[in-house]
Simulated assay, not measured.
Amino acid sequence: MAEIQLRNLSKRWGSFVGVDNFDLTIADREFLVLLGPSGCGKTTTMRMIAGLEQATGGDILIGGKRVNDLDPKDRDVAMVFQSYALYPNLDVYENIRFPLKVRRIDPATHRDRVMRAAEMVELTDFLHRRPAELSGGQRQRVALARAIVRQPNVFLMDEPLSNLDAKLRVSTRAQIKNLSHELKVTTIYVTHDQIEAMTLADRVVVMNKGVVQQVGTPTDIYDRPANVFVAGFIGSPAMNLMEGEIRGGVFEGARVRVPGLSAPDGRAVLGFRAEDAGPGAGSEITAPIYTLELLGDSTMVTVRAGGALVSVKAPKDFRAEIGESFSAHVPASICHVFDAATGARR
Score class of each variant (00 low, 15 high):
Val67Leu: 00
Pro131Lys: 02
Ala85Arg: 06
Leu90His: 09
Leu86Cys: 07
Arg47His: 09
Thr124Leu: 12
Tyr93Arg: 13
Phe98Val: 01
Asp59Glu: 15
Leu123Trp: 07
Asn68Ala: 00
Lys101Tyr: 11
Met115Arg: 15
Leu123Phe: 03
Pro37Arg: 01
Gly57Glu: 10
Pro99Cys: 05
Asn21Val: 11
Ile105Arg: 14
Pro107Phe: 01
Arg104Thr: 07
Arg97Val: 08
Leu32Ile: 14
Val114Ile: 11
Met46Tyr: 07
Gly136Asn: 04
Thr43Arg: 14
Val102Tyr: 14
Met46Gln: 10
Thr56Gly: 04
Ala78Pro: 11
Lys101Gly: 08
Tyr93Pro: 00
Arg29Met: 09
Leu61Pro: 02
Pro131Gly: 04
Asn21Ala: 15
Asp69Ile: 04
Thr44Arg: 13
Glu94Met: 12
Asp106Pro: 02
Gln82Asn: 04
Ile62Lys: 06
Gln82Thr: 02
Asn21Thr: 14
Arg129Trp: 00
Asp71Pro: 05
Gly63Lys: 12
Arg104His: 13
Gln138Leu: 01
Gln82Ile: 06
Lys65Ser: 10
Met120Leu: 15
Asp20Trp: 09
Pro72Trp: 03
His128Ile: 06
Arg111Val: 11
Thr25Ile: 07
Asp59Trp: 09
Leu134Tyr: 13
Lys101Ala: 13
Arg116Ser: 15
Val114Arg: 00
Tyr84Glu: 07
Asn21Asp: 15
Val114Gly: 08
Asp125Phe: 06
Leu61Ile: 08
Pro131Val: 01
Asp74Cys: 02
Ile96Cys: 12
Gly136Met: 02
Glu30Arg: 11
Leu34Cys: 07
Arg104Glu: 11
Lys65Arg: 15
Val67Asn: 01
Ile26Lys: 10
Gly36Trp: 11
Asn68Ser: 06
Gln138Ser: 10
Thr109Cys: 04
Ile62Cys: 00
Arg75Met: 07
Pro88Leu: 00
Gly39Leu: 04
Ile60Phe: 08
Asp106Glu: 08
Arg75Lys: 05
Met48Thr: 10
Asp106Met: 03
Val80Tyr: 12
Arg97Trp: 05
Gly58Tyr: 01
Leu32Ala: 09
Arg116Met: 13
Val114Ser: 11
Asp112His: 14
Arg47Asn: 07
Ala132Ser: 13
Arg29Gln: 15
Val80Gly: 03
Ser38Tyr: 02
Asp91Ile: 08
Arg29Trp: 09
Val114Leu: 06
Arg47Phe: 04
Tyr87His: 09
Lys101Thr: 15
Pro88Gly: 07
Gly63Pro: 07
Arg139Ala: 03
His128Phe: 01
Ile60Glu: 04
Pro131Ile: 01
